[in-house]
Simulated scan of single mutants.
Amino acid sequence: MKGKMLFAAILATSFTISAAEHAHWGYEGQEDPAHWGKLSPDFSLCETGKNQSPINIHGALKTTHHGKLELAFKLGRQQIVNNGHTIQINVSEGNTLELDDDNFVLQQFHFHSPSENEIDGKQFPLEAHFVFKDKDGALAVVALMFEEGKANTQLAQAWQQMPTAVDQTAVLNKPVDIKALLPKEFHFYRFSGSLTTPPCSEGVSWIVIDKPVSASAEQISQFRSVIHHVNNRPVQPLNGRIIID
């Protein structure tokens, strides 16, 4: 009997994983963000979750106990990927974030245009998400906004090899120097949120840098022309969450 139950559990787990893998989602038509919650049972939080991202950052609580944000970056092998939803850059080890005495390791960073998060109702033309994970699988995302201005030298390095076809990849000849990409000095906002793509899992620690960096109109246009559509999820209700400044 126990063997049958175990088999059933394995079968159910396999089905759930398979369903999630084969549930198509996107940013247009019947697969757009408004429909994500109904595309698969695994995506239900996209509709029912109460701590969803992105958000409009306003009314932040100023505090002297902000918590330290320690970032360390190491240049290494990077792979740029067009996955059909975004342009993603996978990184090698050595890039870390220390937050609340917990150590997170950078997995990848990717881009959204226009921005997903807003600051005081302002939407930016481009936003980067740096996705970190700790040893227990908990996620933290650092968000960086771009405003239109002079060309960004770090983006230029990656954009030269940006894959134009879905599922196309390339190893960057010159890796993006993430430390040089970020502002030299900045403050940040913190809040608890979710993934901004299905399955919209909650419990993600969000850190949004308050100071944007620049990207040229051509760089923003190049990203949009490769993705072929906007790839931002609309802002979600706060539902009483506190934003720390």
Rank of each mutant, 00 (worst) to 15 (best):
L11T: 14
S14I: 02
S14V: 05
F15G: 15
T16G: 13
I17S: 00
H22Q: 11
H24P: 00
Y27I: 00
Y27V: 01
E28I: 12
P33I: 00
P41H: 04
F43M: 06
F43V: 03
T48G: 03
G49M: 05
Q52T: 08
P54Q: 08
I55K: 09
K62E: 12
T64Y: 13
G67K: 11
L69S: 00
E70T: 14
E70G: 00
F73S: 00
R77V: 10
R77L: 12
N82H: 13
H85T: 07
N90L: 13
G94A: 08
T96H: 10
E98S: 07
D100V: 05
D101P: 01
D101S: 09
N103S: 12
F104D: 02
F104Q: 04
L106V: 08
L106Y: 08
Q107A: 12
H110Y: 10
N117E: 13
E118M: 14
I119H: 06
K122T: 06
Q123R: 15
P125R: 03
V131A: 07
K135C: 07
L139Y: 06
A140K: 03
A143I: 10
E147Q: 14
A151I: 10
N152R: 08
N152G: 04
T153H: 14
A156K: 15
Q157V: 13
W159R: 05
Q161T: 04
Q161S: 06
A165W: 11
A170L: 07
N173G: 14
N173A: 13
K174T: 15
P175T: 11
V176N: 06
A180C: 01
L181A: 02
L181V: 00
L181T: 05
E185H: 11
F186G: 01
F188S: 07
R190K: 15
S194C: 08
S194A: 05
L195K: 13
L195P: 03
L195H: 14
L195N: 10
T197M: 11
S201F: 09
W206Q: 14
K211C: 05
P212C: 07
V213T: 07
I220M: 00
S221F: 02
Q222V: 00
S225R: 09
S225N: 10
V230K: 15
N231Y: 07
P234L: 10
Q236M: 13
G240S: 05
R241W: 04
I242N: 07
I244R: 08
D245R: 09
